[in-house]
């Protein structure tokens, strides 16, 4: 039976204070590497590494850092941040990524999904959707042709950046109305996460990582309505992200949200909770998880 994956997420930020000091990339490895070594030694199911400033800084993915990290990492690795071109995907895979996560480019130039899937296979293209509950009720939505222009076969035309909030018409989903954001959650798109997920699937994406922006880092639980809306809309695996703070939250994302995998950052970094204990808990509650009973890897 296919196991539900428990996935730590490491957000990797090019901190301003460090940038500008010589050998800044080495400093960044210095912080990422210990975390990766720990998760590697504990044989986690997968790891997701997201550079959350590359796109905003107009930078390509940092292949060198991935090349430095990947030899220490025998865990399946998904890498995101700054991917805009198929060449970026190719170089990340060569540097040691097993999969790539695409967020901003999935909205601005979705052809990258199709080209990436054709060239490298759907299985390595993860579309990462960051969504926020919009501050309006479904009945307040104003009809607009913008979203209906989104077809399953044509490219998404990104809305103008000065989005007129009154004309925003994200699709109602669950109890709320959600809107996708790009550029690390800073830029609204006028797109609903369900529309974006369905489109990404039709372009050949292999997985969707869906993250609730307002829950992320709060450890108050996943946005289950958001996750469920995506798992019901697509037939590819969905990774739940944003908000996990307890093992019970992981369970809810799987059982209520329908997620194939549960991603979490803060709960593993700021609490005593571990991916291994998470799997013990899930297993006791009847969720199939991988139990590694062999000795850990020494590197």
């Amino acid at each position: 039976m296919l196991k539900t994956r428990v996935i730590p997420v490491l957000l990797w930020k090019d901190v301003t204070l460090i940038k500008g000091i010589g050998f800044d990339s080495w400093r960044r490895i210095g912080t990422l590497m210990p975390a990766i070594k720990v998760f590697n030694a504990r044989c986690v199911d997968e790891l997701i590494l997201l550079n959350i400033t590359a796109t905003n800084d107009g930078l390509p993915p940092d292949y060198e850092i991935i090349s430095e990290l990947s030899p220490e990492c025998f865990v399946p690795l998904t890498v995101g941040g700054g991917i805009r071109e198929v060449e970026h995907i190719r170089r990340l895979l060569l540097a040691g990524a097993d999969k790539v996560a695409i967020n901003t480019a999935a909205v601005e130039c979705p052809e990258i999904i199709r080209e990436g899937a054709e060239r490298f296979g759907s299985q390595c293209i993860v579309v990462s959707i960051d969504a926020r509950r919009a501050h309006m009720e479904p009945d307040e939505t104003v009809s607009s042709s913008r979203l209906t222009d989104v077809s399953l076969t044509g490219p998404i035309v990104p809305p103008p950046l000065n989005t007129d909030r009154q004309s925003f018409r994200a699709q109602p989903s669950g109890k709320g109305v959600y809107e996708c954001y790009t550029h690390s959650g800073t830029r609204p798109t006028g797109l609903s996460p369900v529309d974006l997920a369905v489109q990404a699937e039709s372009y050949g994406a292999g997985e969707i990582l869906v993250t609730s922006i307002e829950r992320d880092g709060t450890m108050t639980g996943y946005d289950l309505d958001l996750i469920k809306s995506i798992t019901e809309a697509v037939k590819i695996p969905v990774i739940a992200g944003g908000g996990a703070g307890s093992y019970e939250h992981l369970y809810q994302a799987i059982v209520t949200g329908g997620a194939s995998a549960v991603a979490a950052g803060a709960m593993y970094q700021f609490t005593e909770q571990t991916p291994l204990a998470a799997k013990d808990y899930l297993s006791q509650r009847g969720i199939p998880v991988r139990r590694s009973n062999l000795k850990p890897i020494h590197t």
């Binding site: 296919l2 196991k3 997985e207 590819i236 194939s260």
Partner: peptide
Amino acid sequence: VPDHPDVRIPHVGWND
């Protein structure tokens, strides 16, 4: 080819 409505493709993750 999925043999059940809940089966998702690609097949990603750990399996026996």
